[in-house]
Structure formats: structure tokens, C-alpha cells
Design a protein around this nucleic acid. Structure first.
Lengths: 267, 267
DNA sequence: ATTGACTCTCTCGCCGGGGGAGGGTGCACA
DNA sequence: TGTGCACCCTCCCCCGGCGAGAGAGTCAAT
């Protein structure tokens, strides 16, 4: 009989563009039902319309084509639902980031109030229980949660708030060395937890108030302070979670000390 | 004195990457405070940190660089706030689309229920009061609202629900002819409103229930029906808003007849 | 047989990033 | 005063997902 719908007809009923259908073909998402060997014409059938629409919907949700391919290739509806749920989760966190960026932008746009209180101090060396790793910037938050959970489970008798050191490459190259620690008298060695000596450093420190969405603003202000005092940054940024999620569930009352190791410019 | 922060130092305190800063420079978003004429080295000052962070926030909100440039170039805080508000508006509508796509995807993934009731009928010619235009796909909704408001204002004695015709190029090329109409006994000619004779056509028609986010699924099902009955699509899709936003504010109770002009394939 | 609408493949551009090559620069230390 | 090394420069290519268009082949009605 008739070989099927031409690409143009198929585009018409699915409301996809011809070019897009061709791309979906060559990326293996939607194989035409038949292809004329001599002319190369693609022919589709009406049974392919629902698949095309599923692809369309997934693309509307910014699911990458590769991911769409995986979803379509998955037969088990449960596994498929999980792949989709995972993406919806990503959508949700990206929405959270968007919301945070909006409020932070609003704050940024009203005239910045007051001076930053920065303390320049010498931090003595000390022993801590720590977990270190090299991670991607995107993975820092989940990594931190896991590492901190392991730390607090392995340790007793905390001597102060936990903290983290984040290599500058983490931000400049998207990947870098990370260290989280808890100060204790007698650091254990268990699982990923190691006893580490934090070296003595000269620190420029200030306290960031509120959720961490805004923390780079405080970094910027601290950085400006450092430069304006003829100092230079030298080493990973050091955060101390003075009041953190374990102490208060409300991010607005969090207190995070952020500090950069610095040295005085000779000149 | 010292010429300022090198690009690497500036990247460190703003948490932007060096490459990104260079791009912002060449697109004119963030001009370095000074550039060494002989070496080409970029030097920044601490005063530029807030600007960099505003750019950072706007980019997190997916504001295109060009738009960011416009926002930064605007001195008047009111005008600036408006530009930002406009973008937040766009974010909101895109969020709405995302939500709609999610629910539609969920519907698509459960097994499709029942057959589609399609009516094949000959639509006689008739005179209507209409507004026609050529619009971009993205602009259809606001255009429709404006045109329909003008139509209902210009017309009295409606003989039935309003409707719209949408050229197939609108979907395939993103831009196409659009016509909205109200059936009346005596079509006026006022403003954009014209008296138009809708020609007689053979129609394959079905009714879409609920909000329009899903309407392309019904299009697909109607298209499948048309093809499976050895008919071919011929002409702009015709929608009739049997129950629309004017009749019921709840999208779930909307009824939209969608119809394609068709002709029987000789073969 | 012609015409015109359709289709094919191929290449290029867009955006906002990243990666790397190849070469110049700034500065501390020997 | 070199020498080493980290930093900086420009330039080009790659990515994903789409659009635009060229140039050639195909289908079907007249």
C-alpha cells in the first residue's frame, strides 16, 4: 500500500519541524518506519505519533536528547518513571537556584549597606578529623552532606563548629580539592575519616549571615577588603559553619565564617 | 602603584572563570579598569566586583548576555527594574510551560484510553467577522487575546462560539497566517475587523477537553485518524472554542473543537 | 514532458560556555 | 643577570539543539 507519511505530513500532525524530525532520526530517537532505499525518503506511520509527542514533551522539559534516548530505550515502566523522576528532581533544584538568584539579585541591586567587618588573625595549627576529596563544583553539596554525615558519625567530643576548605581551582576550573573537618581532641581514622593537621595561616575572616545562595557576594566583599589592604589571597578558602543546618533549620539564621589565607604584599 | 587585580585574581574573588571574564570583556559587559597597552594584560579593581556579581546573577537567571548589557547600560533604576521584571515575567511563563509539560507528559505515559470520536462533515461556507494577521508562534497567545477582545467589542449578536484558523506553516516554520473570527449575521468592518467568507470545506473534527497545553496530543490523534482513513490534510487547522475562557474560568472544563480540512486520497 | 512542491545531504551560524595550542609577560630567587 | 615558572595573551575548535540555505534528486498532477 502507501509507504506511510512523508516527513512533511508527519511534521504537520505532530507539530514538530521537518528539520527537528531529521535530527531525531540521526540521533536515533525516532527511526522512521521505513526509508526508501533509492531516494532516501523517510516514511513514518501514525503509530509513531505518540513517541514523537513524548519526545516533544521531554524536550520541553529540557531533557537532553541523549537522556531522551535512554528513556525511550527503557522498556520497564518503573525504570522509565525513575529516569523521568530524576530529571524532574533536577528541574526542581534548578528552580530553587533560580529563586535564590532572584532574591539575591534584588539584594544586590539595592545600595549595599555598611562596611564589612573583617578580622585579620593568625590561625594556629590544629589537629582535626577530616575527609578530603577532589570533586566537581556541581557535586560539592551532596558530597558535603555525605562526608559530614560520615564525620559526625565517626567522631565524638566535638570541640567546635565544623568547617570546610575549598581549593580555588574548584571555582576557576570547576573541579578541585575539598576538605571537611570537625575539630576534636583525638581524631579517629575510620572509613574516609583521617586525622589531619591544619597548618597555621594568616587569615582574613568575616561572617556571612543567612543562606549560602548569597555567599559569593560576601566572598567578593571579603576579596575587596583583602586587596584594599594590600594583601593577597594565598590558598583555599576556609569556611566555618558557626551556625549551620544542624543548629538551626532556618537558613536565615545561619552564620558562616569565610576566610582566605592571605599574605602581606612586600611593596 | 599597583595597576589593579589581574584577571586571575579577579576571577578568584568573584568566583567567575578567567575565560568567562574575557568573554564578558569582549562582549562589552565588563570592561577591565585598565589594560596594559604593551602586554594586553587586563587589570580590574575591587569596585568592579559588584558589577561582576550582578552579571553573574543575571546569567544564573538565563538572561542573555545582550540583555545583561542593556540592563547594565541603563542608568535609571526604574527602567532597569522594568527590564529585570520583564525577564522575571518570561521566567514565570516558562515555568508555567514546564508545569504544563510535566502534567501532559504524565498523561502521555499512562496507556492512552479509548478511541477518538471524530466527525467527518462538510462545513458550508459562511460569513464571519474576522481579524487576520501573520504572527510568530511565540506571539500567538497574546495576539489572540488582543484580537479577540477587539472582535467581541466590535460585534453584537454572536451566532455561536468564536474560532481560529492557524496555517500549518505556523507550526512548521514558526510563523504563519492566523485568523480569528466570530460568527455574526451582519459582520462589521471596523479597526482590524473585516467581514470574511470562510469557504466550504470537508472537515475531520474532534473535541479536545481541558486546557490547551495538551492540545497537540489531540492534534496527533486526529491526524492519525485522518491518515488511517485514507484522507489527507489540506489547509489550516480550524479551532472552535465551544467552551472557552469567557464561558468558564476553569481550563479543565474547556471544550475546543479542532478540525483539519481534508480530502480523500484517490487510490 | 514539464512544473512545482517536496525531499535529500551538506555546510554554516547562533549562544555561552570549555579545551588546548603557541607564544609573550611578570616576578621571585639564585 | 639570568632562569624558571606561573600567569597572561590571542586564536581556533568543540559542544548541544536548533535554524537557514545551497544544490541536487524525487514524486505526482497536469
Amino acid at each position: 500500500m502507501h509507504p506511510g507519511l512523508t516527513i512533511g505530513e508527519f511534521a504537520q500532525v505532530t507539530h514538530l519541524s521537518v528539520r527537528t524530525l531529521r535530527r531525531y532520526h540521526e540521533s536515533g530517537l525516532l527511526e522512521p518506519a521505513s526509508i526508501d532505499a533509492s531516494s532516501g525518503y523517510r516514511y513514518y506511520t501514525t503509530e509513531q505519533i505518540p513517541s514523537a509527542q513524548v519526545i516533544h514533551r521531554l524536550r520541553e522539559l529540557d531533557v537532553p536528547l541523549a537522556e531522551v534516548g535512554k528513556i525511550l530505550a527503557t522498556d520497564d515502566p518503573h525504570a522509565r518513571a525513575e529516569l523521568i523522576a530524576a530529571h524532574l528532581d533536577r528541574l526542581r533544584t534548578s528552580l530553587d537556584r533560580t529563586r535564590a538568584a532572584v532574591t539575591s539579585l534584588q539584594r544586590l541591586l539595592r545600595p549595599e549597606s555598611g562596611d564589612l567587618e573583617v578580622e585579620l588573625r593568625t590561625q594556629p595549627a590544629r589537629m582535626v578529623a577530616a575527609i578530603t576529596d577532589v570533586v566537581d563544583l556541581d557535586d560539592v553539596l551532596p558530597w558535603y552532606d555525605g562526608a559530614m554525615a560520615e564525620l559526625t558519625a565517626a567522631v565524638r567530643g566535638q570541640l567546635g563548629p565544623p568547617g570546610g576548605h575549598y581549593a580555588n581551582e574548584l571555582f576557576s576550573a570547576g573541579r578541585g580539592a575539598v576538605l571537611v573537618y570537625v575539630p576534636v581532641a583525638d581524631p579517629p581514622s575510620y572509613g574516609r575519616v583521617r586525622s589531619v593537621e591544619l597548618p597555621a595561616v594568616e587569615l582574613a575572616a568575616t561572617v556571612h549571615h543567612g543562606p549560602h545562595d548569597d555567599i559569593d557576594v560576601t566572598y567578593g566583599r571579603l576579596g575587596a577588603w583583602v586587596v584594599d589592604h594590600t594583601l593577597a589571597v594565598d590558598g583555599p578558602v576556609q569556611e566555618t559553619y558557626v551556625v549551620g543546618p544542624r543548629d538551626d533549620p532556618d537558613p536565615a539564621s545561619w552564620r558562616t565564617e569565610i576566610a582566605w589565607p592571605v599574605f602581606r604584599l612586600t611593596g
